[in-house]
Design a protein around this nucleic acid. Sequence first.
DNA 1: TTAACCGCATACG
DNA 2: CGGAGCGTATGCGGTTAA
Length: 661
Amino acid sequence: MDGVDKEKVQRVVYEMSKGSKYFENEERKEAFIKQKIENMRAQCANLTATDLPQYQMIADKRILELESGRDLSRTWLHVDMDAFYAAVETLENPLLKGKPMAVGGMSMISTANYEARKYGVRAAMPGFIGKKLCPDLIFAPPDFKKYTHYSDLTRKVFLKYDPNFVASGLDEAYLDITEVCKERAISSIEIAEELRKCVYEETGLTCSAGVAPNRLLAKVCSDINKPNGQFVLPNDRMHILIFISSLPIRKIGGIGNVTERILSDVLGINTCEEMLQKCAFLCALFSRSSADFFLSVGLGLGKTDAPEVRSRKSMSSERTFSATANEDSLYQKLADIAATLSSDMEKEGLSGRTLTLKLKTDSFEVRTRAASFQSHINSSEDILIHASKLLKAELPISLRLIGLRMSHFNDEKIGTVDPTQKKLTSFIIPGDSSAKLTCSNNSMPASSGNSGRDSMDHSVTCLPIYAHNNTFVDPFHDCESENPSNSNQLSDFEQMHDISSNIAGEMELEFRSKQNDCQSEVATADTTASGTQMAKTKSFFGYSETNFVDKHNKRSNFSDEVNKKQPPQILWEDDYKCALCGAELPPSFIEERREHSDYHFAEMLQKEETELNERDLIQRQRTSNVVQNAKESKRKKRKNNPKESSHLPIDMFFVKSSQNF
DNA sequence: TTAACCGCATACG
DNA sequence: CGGAGCGTATGCGGTTAA
């Protein structure tokens, strides 16, 4: 923004911040990042003259592969409403017009209008600093009902240009305008102009648009002539490379503050073009997927296909309050949050297996503590019981925030078969589309008024997908066409990593396996659902395999180092008697023999380590409860004395084994 | 060996 | 007067149980 005195803004922000606990925490974080940068610099310096040409070769190969996937056949448009929340407030209260205003409060600003931005007031800035920068600043409390209403109006417009558009939050959307341009034989420039005009007529709000051959670039373009402007990048490789050449990396979605600093301070990369110049270093320092993303950015590549609809993975609720160490008060807040989360989950018919407690101490340090369970839970009582255990382990503590997150939902694909999960056939209720569907060990109504995302969840889990005319409906196709406006937030980084199609692949796998389950029972099961999706499944496998190889290598190296102690190979005399204690176990008792061997192993280790002071204590903790307690004490131990931790599993094992004997 | 899990950091609207 | 949010998703590095 022109006319912003950046130095003054910085000075004010610094003056208001320094000495605060928040500021001290920021400094700690800053030191951590600096350390990280130093480490990576050292890593760079350690690259030998033989390393670099090898990484250069890898990088060149990757660039060729990525380039070969370039698709210039599509035209994407990214729409971004200008200062959306603030604009809506002004629209409904014309007295605010022309005055500096922000949506939010003294503690945090969500959106500032352009008048306020002239003073340096920004989104994600605390209100009291905004007020200091601009004493006339007016605050409007957020009102999401209003914003949703206007968002719906804009979406009605978007539908006319792309019935499958992808919404990203309330104020942004990606539209594939390839077909509209073709059908109406007009340029993307005209489409963008017309769309913006139409949005203004329908809502009275202005927006900005960017047009480019992929979503990543379209998003960058919509920012160029903001507010109330547009920028069109032609579907031409040379144009793209020129555009990219001077583009600061921070403009790319997925590259935030920290990544920008790492790339800049470690490798001297400031523009997208420099990603290619330093490609060998990128491949040497970063994981395959990160390096691929960075190289793609350098080439100006991005996703061009329609992203898959993704189901929710977690749901959370958190609250900030004035810091307290009063335990009654903390438990009360925890109970409130558990109730909020539970009610939110019930609204979507969800229940989850993993609960994560989030804490922010009065010094702004953030901690998370998680626990997973055998069965899915969603009642506020169950959530509170487990959450309290997690919190109890952290006491005493002074907190300014408590949060709870549930994940691993009942309808999620899991690797091993959930024993509580019913077979598909138990869900099939032939011919009755109104029947309630029972999923896992909790029931949820198959409501008709659900969002597309929900119907997706249900279809993946429950799968008796009969329409009223009793024909089989493709769940993937169905939810996309039914609710194109569902809010699918995809960062460019994720898109570039092909994560959405991975998830689609996972769902696909489950879908297909369940379909197989029911084929003998359901003669009407449709086979057309698989044909086109087969390819996606394959690409899912291809991607994962390469990923797993990397992980696998890292882990096996690690475990080679750590697992130096191996269980003794017990000799079974006459293939029957334990050579160590004479216990008799026939060869067919494989499991029992393994446990027996483990017992001797544990015994052996125990002898070795009897001098350890803390062992008795740990053992008592172990015997007292199951996994949960074991994990907690291990965590404490790890903090206090990291060296000890490697002994703990053995102790635990010993206790377990000795119970068997 | 490996999938599942945990804790932390990063990013975005 | 001091005062720095909420919800969702992902990657990375690590541990653990089976």
